[in-house]
Amino acid sequence: MSKRTTSHDYSLRSLQSLLGVSRSVLSGLIEAGFVQPTRGRRNELRFTFQDVVVLRTAFQLQSARIASRKILRALAKLKADLPDELPLSGIRITAVGDSVAVKTGQAQWDATSGQHLLDFEVAPLQGDVTFLDTTPRSMRSREQQAAEWFALAEQLVDSDAVGAEQAYRKALELAPGPHYYAYTNLGVLLSEAGTRGEDALAVFDEALEHFPDDALLHFNRAVVLEELQRFDMAVQAYGRCIELDPGHADAHFNLARLSEIRGDRQALVRHLSAYRRLSS
């Protein structure tokens, strides 16, 4: 099963979906020096959990008309102090007057000076990361709300599978268009539960109605079918994955294994050879 996006490693595309901002806005925040992403194996930009918090905060503080100089100063200190993992108390960041306020647990401080601030209105949450948005929910777009639910699901996925499922489904409900990452990650989450194969299959089937030519969705669907012991259907799904992405080594490997189970020696040799060639 292909893994969902983790909390610690985001691509530019998944970050854009998570934050609910345009690519141009996101690129502008990066060019302004708010974060310094690393490069992946294919030279693509990769972002950490700290980067996600900092970029979301920078975007909201710019919208609150906080001076860029003050944002940069506050975020430099904030990023240095952010933990590698999300604390159980959550992290909440917003503008209080012309200051940048950070709250974790019961503590709240000025992100630049470190001085404690008086409490401000925050909806209580348990164990979630919440980016406080001063815009009334009724005025925020469905795209923004879907992005917030997706972000919450990503944070809950390793600690609260039930909550993560609910958040992914809420993101799918609110998204103005098909939310590829919510479909993919929800399907993987249900598959990993061990007893939710039928539910996972339903998610991937629905996703493929919107993204019929996506090789990863066909691969994940094939894995679920295999776990449900629907081997003929799994072979067809792996085959469709390879039609769309001939370089998908794992699909060739799984097909080789299924071919051996079914006694198809010719297919076994063909797919095993393809797997070895692609993996070398």
Results as ranks from 00 to 15, higher is better:
residue 211 F to N: 09
residue 137 R to S: 14
residue 251 A to T: 03
residue 204 F to D: 04
residue 132 L to H: 12
residue 198 E to C: 01
residue 61 L to Q: 12
residue 247 G to E: 13
residue 35 V to N: 03
residue 127 G to C: 07
residue 165 E to I: 01
residue 233 M to N: 09
residue 226 E to Y: 03
residue 22 S to A: 06
residue 31 E to Q: 10
residue 17 S to M: 13
residue 275 Y to M: 01
residue 86 L to A: 08
residue 232 D to T: 09
residue 267 A to K: 10
residue 209 E to Q: 14
residue 67 A to I: 05
residue 212 P to Q: 07
residue 243 E to K: 07
residue 35 V to E: 04
residue 3 K to N: 08
residue 160 D to V: 13
residue 116 H to I: 07
residue 114 G to P: 05
residue 161 A to V: 11
residue 65 R to D: 11
residue 85 E to T: 15
residue 243 E to S: 07
residue 192 E to S: 13
residue 255 L to M: 15
residue 276 R to T: 11
residue 217 L to S: 08
residue 58 A to F: 02
residue 258 L to C: 09
residue 74 A to T: 00
residue 189 L to E: 09
residue 191 S to E: 07
residue 6 T to G: 12
residue 166 Q to I: 09
residue 38 T to S: 14
residue 250 D to W: 07
residue 95 A to N: 02
residue 193 A to D: 12
residue 168 Y to W: 04
residue 148 E to D: 08
residue 35 V to C: 08
residue 68 S to R: 11
residue 269 V to E: 11
residue 73 R to D: 11
residue 225 L to M: 02
residue 116 H to S: 14
residue 194 G to M: 01
residue 21 V to H: 10
residue 127 G to W: 00
residue 2 S to C: 08
residue 40 G to H: 01
residue 40 G to Y: 00
residue 170 K to N: 06
residue 171 A to D: 00
residue 89 S to G: 15
residue 200 A to P: 00
residue 21 V to Y: 01
residue 223 V to R: 05
residue 42 R to N: 14
residue 20 G to F: 14
residue 35 V to W: 04
residue 226 E to R: 09
residue 177 G to F: 06
residue 206 E to D: 15
residue 126 Q to R: 12
residue 142 R to V: 00
residue 267 A to F: 02
residue 45 L to R: 05
residue 133 D to S: 10
residue 259 S to H: 02
residue 79 K to T: 09
residue 207 A to L: 03
residue 199 D to W: 04
residue 200 A to C: 04
residue 190 L to D: 02
residue 214 D to A: 11
residue 173 E to R: 05
residue 75 L to W: 03
residue 51 D to A: 04
residue 150 F to Y: 10
residue 239 G to P: 06
residue 24 S to T: 10
residue 132 L to P: 08
residue 219 F to E: 02
residue 72 L to D: 14
residue 277 R to M: 03
residue 102 V to H: 03
residue 75 L to E: 07
residue 151 A to M: 07
residue 219 F to G: 04
residue 198 E to S: 12
residue 53 V to A: 15
residue 91 I to W: 06
residue 25 V to M: 09
residue 111 A to R: 10
residue 204 F to E: 05
residue 71 I to H: 12
residue 104 T to L: 14
residue 126 Q to W: 08
residue 114 G to E: 07
residue 145 Q to W: 01
residue 158 D to L: 14
residue 187 G to L: 13
residue 85 E to I: 00
residue 115 Q to W: 00
residue 41 R to G: 11
residue 199 D to K: 01
residue 134 T to G: 09
residue 62 Q to V: 02
residue 271 H to L: 05
residue 91 I to F: 07
residue 56 R to G: 15
residue 19 L to Y: 04
residue 174 L to P: 06
residue 125 L to G: 13
residue 201 L to W: 02
residue 153 A to S: 01
residue 184 T to S: 15
residue 63 S to V: 00
